[in-house]
Amino acid sequence: MVEAIAFYVFGGLSVLTALLVIFQRDPVRSAIYLVACFIQVAALFVLLRSPFLAAVQVFVYVGAVVVLFLFVIMVLELKKERFSEYIHRGQRPWALFIIPALIGEVGYLAVKGKSKASLGPYSEEFLVKQGSTESLGKVLFTKYIFPFEVVSLLLLVALMGAIILTMKRGKE
């Protein structure tokens, strides 16, 4: 019962803040609402018994991604958009067609679909006994060690790419 109330509160707030992100004219306000949305999603991760993911969500998204957005907004010195020009007119019919289709399709599949997958070994009692973060770490560093290394390399390449792209050149 408590879980249901918490789910509806966090889920509703995340939808509300997500709507506010895309309907704000000022990018700084969008970024602030994005922080609120990410924190609601972190709370949903706690409801899904994965506190490690909630911590990573707050650290990476709120601590790194949104701060990066705010830095770029600060560097670019954007003016506030006028009300009539913040929506892309040419793409509005497409959006009006695609979004209900998407909601209808995924909603139909989510409600009507039946999951045939068998349950794995990580039941709630097992996670309480072993610790959910500990089990996640064990799986991450044994079974998924290769994707883990690939992803770390990807992050390094992206870091170098960002630095090289923004370097001022043309001196020579």
Binding site: V15, I99, A110
Partner: peptide, 16 residues
Amino acid sequence: CILFAIGVAGVLLRRN
């Protein structure tokens, strides 16, 4: 699904 649709709406509708 709802959050995904909101995200897609933002990608399609916003100019910034």
